[in-house]
């Protein structure tokens, strides 16, 4: 469904100057600075997949999404979305994708929610019957009825996000880009958003690309993640493979020796062992030689694994 090959985006901006006449110099300068936002990124995404597209702030996630929606043209590389080149077949591509930016809203701030949805219906040429049917489904699924006629500025963040989701899927696009759809939401509202994504993916075979900093979203929704940083793909594969690591035993020893069984002391004075086989025997043999002051067992989790990858 999506095929991205060697995608690169370089932004070229006039150099900015500081100092008393900095603004003027910036205006007339012929010096440019280049910033590579996306660097030789390749991936394939199949129909109906839910992908976690992850990376720290400024990693190039939003730039990729803007290219996939056809708003930006890449500097190099090829992209096919449903067989279309997004920036060349912009209008046809636009009809087949829905976008939510958690930090911004596509809803008209001063108008009742329903008006923004009507606008979407008309911009995407939805016949009245199809619009009504789709709206009815979303009203039930997202519980829109209680605030459909309320101006968007008076909605809570959770309600607004539900409205944004409704606007993004109203015309039933087969592809959905969700950029931080749970940002700032409380636990219940996050749960509602996740359930909606699962439901949309299940019933409509909608492909979802999800960008988020909340790894609980990823664990709840995605089987596969693509991890990028500094514009480069660091990891692309199933989450299971990423977290498929042994549990670890963390001990703090009274004597704090330099090294125990080939494991050296870390900066907090602890020793961390990978657990293979018999855990009680392992603990017993350590306590036979050393006095254990504290002990804990760490499960591998996505957050620490991802932190480890970024740190490389």
């Amino acid at each position: 469904m999506i095929r991205v090959d060697g995608l690169t985006k370089v932004f070229r901006r006039p150099r900015t100057f500081s100092g008393p006449f900095g603004a003027l110099r910036t205006l007339v300068t012929r010096q440019y600075e280049e910033k590579t936002a996306v660097d030789d990124v390749s991936f394939d995404i199949g129909e109906g997949e839910v992908i976690g597209y992850l990376g720290p702030n400024g990693a190039g996630k939003s730039t990729t999404i803007k290219i996939l929606t056809g708003i930006l043209t890449p500097t190099a590389g090829t992209v096919r979305v449903n067989g279309l080149v997004p920036w060349r077949d912009r209008s046809a591509n636009a009809r087949r994708v829905g976008v939510v930016f958690g930090q911004r809203s596509q809803l008209w701030w001063d108008l009742p929610l329903i008006e923004s949805l009507r606008l979407v219906g008309s911009l995407y040429d939805m016949p009245a019957a199809r619009f009504e049917a789709s709206l009815k489904k979303l009203r039930d699924l997202l519980g829109l009825d209680e605030f459909l006629d309320t101006p968007v500025r008076q909605l809570s963040l959770g309600q607004r996000m539900r409205g944004d989701l409704a606007a993004a899927v109203l015309y039933e696009p087969p592809l959905l880009y969700l950029d931080e759809p749970t940002v700032g939401l409380d636990v219940l509202a996050k749960e509602a958003v996740r359930e909606f994504i699962v439901e949309t993916n299940r019933t409509g075979r909608t492909t979802v690309i999800l960008t988020t900093h909340d790894l609980a979203d990823v664990e709840a929704l995605c089987k596969r993640i693509i991890l990028i940083d500094h514009g480069k793909v660091l990891f692309d594969g199933p989450i299971d493979a990423l977290v498929d690591q042994p549990r670890r035993l963390v001990v703090l020893l009274e004597s704090a020796p330099e090294e125990v069984r080939g494991v050296s002391r870390d900066d907090q004075g602890r020793h961390v062992f990978d657990i293979h086989g018999d855990l009680p025997a392992m603990i017993a043999s350590i306590s036979a030689e050393h006095t254990i002051r504290d002990l804990s067992i760490e499960e591998p989790d996505l957050e620490s694994v991802i932190k480890g990858i970024y740190a490389r």
């Binding site: 803007k66 708003i71 009809r95 911004r104 911009l123």
Partner: peptide, 18 residues
């Protein structure tokens, strides 16, 4: 300025026409 122009540009209808 608010960045919501993104959505206008992502529509299937031309920007100036909207």
């Amino acid at each position: 300025r608010s960045g919501t122009v993104f959505f206008d540009l992502a529509r299937p209808i031309g920007y100036l026409r909207q």
